[in-house]
Amino acid sequence: MFRSTKALAISNARHLSTSAILRQEAVGTVGTVPVKRPVGGFRGGILGFFFGFSFASALSIYYLQQDNKIASGLLLASVEELQQGTGKISSHLDRLQTVEKELAALKSSGAIKDDVTKVRGEMKKVYDGLHLELLDLRAHVWGVEQDLQKVVKTGESVDLT
């Protein structure tokens, strides 16, 4: 437990020495010796940070590109559906335009209600005129029958004019 004086002299001499080897040697220290970090350790931390950052950035860019591809595909499908719908609507509009043209042609060539009532009135006049002529003809035929019966009964000749 007691140190010899020679050992004390050597330990004191070591503390007082200025050589590089003796300075690094720690004699009689209590606890752990602090270890000097090399300068590259700081660089390694920065390099690790940049490596992790670049890896995370690359991974996020990859996922963003995948999402972009999916969204582009969905958008393209929507555009194609819209084109098909637009084609159907334009074909329906073409059919409607042809129907409207045919309807306009029928309206221009068809009779209007006023025309129909006008023609109906004219037909009534013609029918009434024919009815009157028929009545006149019957009256004339009746007169001829009367004259004929007179002739048959009397045997005389009758002037037909």
Rank of each mutant, 00 (worst) to 15 (best):
S78C: 01
L22R: 12
M123S: 05
A104H: 07
A105W: 02
F53H: 05
R14D: 12
G85T: 08
G110E: 03
F50K: 02
E100F: 05
S60V: 11
L22M: 02
G121Q: 04
K124H: 08
E122G: 06
G28K: 10
Y63A: 07
G87N: 14
L16H: 09
D128T: 08
D94M: 08
F53Y: 05
G44K: 06
G28Y: 00
Y62P: 00
F49R: 09
Q24N: 14
S109F: 14
K124I: 10
A71E: 02
G52H: 01
V126C: 01
I61S: 11
G73P: 00
A13C: 13
K125E: 12
F53G: 09
I61Y: 13
N12L: 10
A20S: 14
S11F: 03
D114S: 13
G121I: 04
A77E: 06
V33T: 11
R95H: 06
L76P: 00
S19M: 07
A13D: 04
V126M: 07
L47H: 12
A56R: 03
S54V: 14
D94A: 13
D115I: 02
I10S: 11
K107N: 01
V126E: 14
G121E: 05
G48D: 15
V27D: 04
Q24W: 09
Q83I: 06
G129R: 06
Q83M: 15
R120D: 11
K88V: 04
K113E: 11
L16I: 08
K107V: 05
V116K: 10
L76F: 07
R120T: 08
P38Q: 12
V99L: 14
K36F: 13
I21V: 15
V99W: 13
L59Y: 14
A9S: 05
F55S: 08
R37I: 10
G129D: 15
V119L: 13
Q66L: 14
A104K: 08
S109G: 09
L8A: 07
A58D: 07
F51K: 06
Q66F: 04
Q97D: 01
R43K: 01
F50P: 00
Q83Y: 06
L96H: 10
F42W: 10
K69F: 13
T32Y: 11
